[in-house]
């Protein structure tokens, strides 16, 4: 169990249009014991609006982690990634790219953007569920770094 020092649960933004994957991610995190709020945006436009919105007040929070699918309708994951990196508020937010493609080409494209992880969505259930512990470690490291 991850201890929350400040009020509320860990907030994870999932930008993913496939509900099957969202469900599997939720399952993986749950099985890994990550107590979190999953905020899901399932299309590019909304995601874009969300990440580009200025956050002046301190009360307006940014997520603790962004899980980004590269293959989205309307705006590609790459554009969203660019927007995230363009918003200072997201400067310390780790981004993990979840992609169905393992191609080097896709990996090469996001090399310029500092992403915490590049995870190819595994076609095997057991493999998929291993994403949970991986993300848990990432969150722990991220908190440690932030602190």
């Amino acid at each position: 169990m991850i201890e929350r020092t400040d009020a509320g649960k860990i907030r994870i933004l999932v930008i993913e249009d496939n509900p099957g994957d969202v469900e599997l991610i939720r399952m993986a995190l749950e099985l890994a014991g990550v107590d979190c709020d999953l905020q899901v945006i399932d299309e590019g436009e909304g995601a874009m609006a969300y990440v580009q919105r200025p956050r002046n007040s301190a009360g307006e929070q940014v997520p603790d982690l962004v899980l980004l699918d590269l293959n989205l309708p309307k705006h590609s994951g790459l554009e969203i990634l660019e927007a995230i990196r363009g918003n200072q508020a997201f400067a310390s937010v780790p981004v993990t790219v979840l992609s169905s493609s393992s191609s080097r080409r896709d990996r090469a494209k996001i090399e310029d953007f500092k992403v915490a992880m590049y995870i190819t969505k595994p076609p095997d259930l057991e493999e998929f569920l291993k994403i949970g512990p991986t993300l848990k470690d990432l969150l722990a490291n991220s908190k440690a770094t932030a602190r």
């Binding site: 099957g20 293959n71 169905s100 595994p122 076609p123 095997d124 259930l125």
Partner: peptide, 17 residues
């Protein structure tokens, strides 16, 4: 092959599930 992989992955994972 690329696009078929996605639904196939779903079928694969969910049938396993």
């Amino acid at each position: 092959s690329h696009d078929l992989q996605e639904p196939l992955r779903m079928i694969s994972v969910y049938s396993q599930l």
